[in-house]
Design a protein around this nucleic acid. Structure first.
Length: 653
DNA sequence: CTAGGGTTAG
């Protein structure tokens, strides 16, 4: 008891970063072998390594093994370990042939055990790895850290913290390297992957020597947890920052939807003279995709080209660029990138297919799908989300149903929640609400909140409070705190004129003390400066001018017969107050600012975090007519291209 | 051996 409590109150030690030293292994006692034979073996080993490396199929590996046996080296752990690593590399399952070859070695060394454990882990054969591990323990093999790291990784993939801890304990007892950098880093990673971040942190704090990898592991753990402040704190304390650490910060901000911070870190990284590679660039490209502005899109493409990563010969950068351009509102630029790419894989095709789909280019989507199949690129679940979405936007119900029916039979893609979602949307969009409900009830998997949400959304468009009530009942059970569901239901009741039900839902919202997310929009002003507008926030330095521009615009719209749609305001306030709330919606203020500051010929691109409301949608239509400016709004759902009084979404969104 | 990455609708 005493020693335990003393252990617990040990102060946290934070030794300085050390540059990694080459690991020292204990020398095993080897039998006497004449020098000439030793030289011969060495030569053979390097020759065999080379042969194994060039194996691309199981047959070739088997041939190589035959040769190894003939040369009398089938007992050599080094060579057999190499063989197992090659099997893993060419995706041959370990359990049949690999285990057989392994079992022929009488005294496997730790590296051979490690290779087998790793291979089994890749195949997801956890029990088998544990078995191999215990037989190694029984053999009393000279302890080195490799097999322990491999086992910790296996435990992490199985989320088995308990066994991981035990194995770590054994590594401490046996070899005393329980907190060396490899084992420690893997242990941190295991804790983090299993959601035990604080334990990971404790290991980090206890490690006597840490390298950049320890630091980066933990930084990434914090970013994945949404805790950018802790990540930043750790990162700031890092005396030497390399490309990977910087990239971890950049992508961390991207994953937490903070594109401007991501770009800020990227610039600091460049200023610090750190090199970038394709992984960094993908992070930066994604940041620009989040921003959704064309200027940054072109800028990052230029950066990529100049750093030697052109979409022409880099499939990862190319695919990321396609996704970015379509999210920045330009399916054309996305397709330009697509066309110039030499290598195209499933990511490339899927990105482009989804890109066409969200821009409403259904025929291009379907053509591209055919092309992909013809070129033997196997479509996956994401590809089908794109295809079904395209059918949905274009009202191609039969085509969509057909694709849904054949996706598993012809392409082996099992319909998932995402696909059912698309189908509910497809049916709901054309008003087939009962059919959609029937589909949901026939699902082999339990329908989740987003499925019922898709149905509820369709009920809003078709003002069907009866089906809406069914969907809402399930939704309130699955997501009791989802404010959006209550608002939707209330709007549906309102449109059906069921005001008593409206007030019932409003009361529910009040009782649950739910609050709407703050809405905001951003727009690119002159010189690529991005301006953010929050709903009702009048702190922009040019607020006065924006107000003036807004008044002018409202007057011009009134002349054309555009009136505010007061039913978009869910609060019980006077009509005047409703008008005031509507006119302060963030996208309207962003629009007024853009009209004020940008050139006439250019399209106005607005990005907003929530779904655009009906009143703003109408307002944008009207403005595109009276000003003859093209307006592109990206909301959290899709793109709206407003042109001369109409929207590309055909008023379904 | 251990750290950063590309496609998902409404």
């Amino acid at each position: 008891m005493v020693s335990l409590s003393r252990k617990l109150i040990l102060p946290i030690i934070r030794p300085p970063l050390v540059i990694r030293q080459p690991t020292k292994f204990r020398q095993e006692k080897t039998p006497f072998i004449p020098f000439s034979r030793l030289q011969q073996i060495k030569q053979l080993e390097s020759q065999l390594t080379h042969t194994l490396d060039s194996c691309t199929s199981l047959t070739k590996v088997k041939q190589a093994h035959g040769y190894i046996i003939r040369k009398g080296l089938c007992q050599c752990s080094y060579i057999i370990a190499k063989l197992l690593r090659v099997l893993a590399k060419i995706n041959v399952p370990m359990h049949a042939y690999g285990v057989l070859v392994f079992s022929q070695v009488k005294h496997p060394n730790p590296f051979l055990y490690t290779a087998l454990i790793r291979g089994l882990t890749i195949d997801g054969l956890f029990k088998e790895s544990v078995l191999i591990y215990s037989s190694m323990r029984k053999d009393g093999v000279t302890p080195v850290s490799f097999p322990y790291t491999a086992m910790l990784k296996a435990c992490s993939s199985q989320m088995n913290v308990h066994l991981g801890r035990q194995i770590h304990g054994e590594s401490v007892k046996l070899g005393g390297f329980g907190l060396d950098m490899f084992v420690g880093n893997t242990l941190i990673d295991m804790y983090v992957k299993c959601g035990w971040l604080d334990c990971g942190r404790r290991v980090f704090d206890k490690m006597p020597h840490r390298d950049l990898i320890s630091w980066t592991s933990l930084i990434v753990a914090y970013t994945k947890n949404g805790d950018m402040d802790s990540a930043r704190e750790l990162f700031d304390g890092l005396p030497v920052k390399d490309m990977v650490a910087w990239t971890a910060m950049v992508t961390g901000f991207v994953q937490n939807a903070k594109p401007r911070e991501a770009l800020d870190y990227f610039e600091r990284m460049l200023r610090a003279g750190v090199e970038t590679d394709e992984v960094t660039l993908v992070g930066v490209i994604n940041a620009c995709a989040l921003l959704g502005t064309s200027k940054y899109a072109n800028w990052v493409r230029d950066v990529a080209e100049r750093s030697g990563y052109s979409p022409k010969d880099n499939v990862v950068v190319g695919s990321a660029l396609i996704d970015m351009y379509s999210k920045c509102g330009s399916a054309e630029s996305a397709y330009d990138v697509f066309k110039m790419m030499q290598e195209k894989n499933v990511y490339t095709y899927s990105s482009m297919i989804v890109g066409f789909a969200i821009h409403g280019c259904a025929s291009s989507t379907l053509e591209l799908f055919e092309e992909m199949v013809k070129k033997d690129v196997m479509p996956n679940h994401v590809t089908f989300v794109g295809v079904l979405t395209a059918c949905s936007h274009a009202g191609l119900v039969e085509k969509g149903q057909h694709m849904f029916k054949i996706m598993e039979k012809s392409y082996g893609v099992k319909p998932s929640y995402d696909h059912y979602n698309c189908m509910v949307d497809l049916l709901g969009r054309t008003g087939r609400l009962e059919e959609a409900l029937k589909l949901i009830r026939s699902m082999p998997i339990e329908p989740n909140a987003s499925i019922w949400g898709a149905l509820l959304g369709a009920c809003r468009t078709y003002a069907n409070p009866d089906v809406a009530e069914v969907a809402a009942r399930h939704l309130f059970k699955l997501e009791p705190d989802g404010i959006g569901n209550y608002i939707l239901l209330s709007n549906i009741y309102a449109r059906a004129g069921r005001w008593e039900d409206v007030s019932k839902v409003r009361k529910l919202i009040r009782e649950k003390r739910l609050r709407k997310n703050p809405a905001f929009s951003w727009v690119e002003g002159s010189k690529g400066v991005i301006h953010e507008f929050y709903a009702g926030d009048l702190t922009h330095p040019r607020s006065r001018e924006i107000d003036q521009a807004m008044e002018d615009l409202v007057d011009r719209l009134k002349l054309k017969g555009h009136n505010p749609n007061l039913s978009c305001v869910l609060y019980d306030v006077s009509d005047e107050e409703k008008k005031r709330i509507l006119i302060n919606h963030s996208e309207k203020r962003a629009l007024a600012y853009a009209l004020l500051t940008t050139d006439d010929g250019l399209p106005i691109r607005i990005v907003k975090n929530l779904r655009i409301c009906e009143d703003c949608h109408l307002f944008m239509c009207g403005t595109s007519q009276v000003t003859q400016r093209q307006i592109i709004v990206r909301d959290n759902m899709r793109f709206h291209h407003f042109h001369d009084g109409t929207c590309s979404c055909r008023n379904f969104w």
